[in-house]
């Protein structure tokens, strides 16, 4: 006689008494297909339609490459600034108690809530040579608006909450006893921050950094007003897509869009791999 081991039948889903699986999943997939897949695959189809050579000659056109370089470069610098200041903001919000802390905590989400065009014109007005910040800086010979520095300022604004909101919960859950343990072992505060706290925050910091970076690469509304949009100097890739579309040069727009998407997805893939690796080793994300 064979042992009565019941081998589970291969199933798409585990059985459940709850109703509505087919209906809700069917609706979800249909909706996603209509709103997201078909349009996105249109981009892939158009890119393929261009042919290999035509695609790369468009994608590697000097102005395109420069625009991509500016978008990715400015996003990188802004993400670094945000990693530093975002971590400081999260630290102050979690660890210190001072009047106005809760208000500040709520205000961190402002860049999520404020439409990008509003942020864009406001930053442009502030940093313009006659603006509240631009004026004193102009007296010092520093120009922000209508230069690549302006792009970075705008991207710092839109990216800040990503870092703060990913680091904050991790910092909150950080066991104070670990810091105390380091102190009883003779480690000074600076040493504890460097070798105990920062490594524990590193995965969250990296996630926040990548989110801010990815957002910065694709950002449009808050940048175009302050950037000055000078080709080869302060023209970002999303703007170049818009310009090509206005010129009815759909092929070029498609190529730039496809390259941006590929780079962004590669980025997300890397971050997912880092997070998975972290989880496997230290038992946390």
């Amino acid at each position: 006689m064979r042992a009565g081991v019941v081998k589970p039948r291969w199933r798409i889903r585990k059985p459940s008494v709850l109703p509505g699986f087919g209906l809700t999943l069917g609706f979800t997939l249909t909706y996603l297909t209509l709103i997201v897949f078909i349009p996105l695959s249109g981009l892939a189809w158009h890119s393929a339609d261009l042919g290999w050579d035509a695609f790369w000659s468009l994608a590697l056109a000097p102005r395109t490459v420069q625009a991509l370089r500016i978008s990715f470069g400015a996003a990188l610098v802004a993400a670094v600034v945000n990693a530093v200041f975002g971590a400081a903001v999260a630290w102050v919000l979690v660890r210190y108690r001072f009047p106005g802390r809760r208000l500040l905590d709520a205000a961190v989400d402002l860049p999520f809530a404020l439409p990008t065009a509003v942020a864009g014109i406001s930053l442009a007005a502030l940093y313009a040579p006659n603006g509240w910040i631009g004026q004193p800086l102009a007296d010092l010979g520093v120009r922000i608006a209508y230069t690549p520095a302006g792009i970075i300022v705008a991207l710092v604004f839109v990216g800040l909450p990503f870092v703060v909101r990913t680091v904050q919960p991790v910092l909150q859950d950080l066991d104070r006893e670990v810091e105390e343990a380091a102190a009883t072992l003779g480690a000074g505060r600076a040493r504890t921050v460097r070798s105990v706290i920062l490594p524990a925050l590193a995965p969250a910091l990296l996630t926040g950094f990548t989110l801010a970076f990815a957002r910065g690469v694709g950002e449009y509304g808050s940048v175009i007003f302050i950037a000055g949009n000078i080709p080869f100097v302060s023209e970002i890739a999303p703007l170049l897509i818009v310009i090509r579309l206005e010129e009815f040069n759909t092929a070029a727009a498609t190529a730039i869009g496809a390259v941006m998407l590929m780079l962004s997805f590669a980025l997300l893939l890397v971050i997912n791999m880092i997070q998975g690796w972290n989880r496997a080793r230290f038992g946390h994300g």
């Binding site: 066991d175 006893e177 670990v178 105390e180 009883t184």
Partner: peptide, 26 residues
């Protein structure tokens, strides 16, 4: 003082050897 915490408070991102050696390397 050598202090052993109730929930150990080990450094999660360090190996066992690095944990034990922390006090000396600090």
């Amino acid at each position: 003082v050598g202090f052993v915490f109730q929930h150990y408070a080990l450094f999660r991102h360090m190996t066992v050897a690095q944990n034990v050696g922390f006090g000396l390397s600090a």
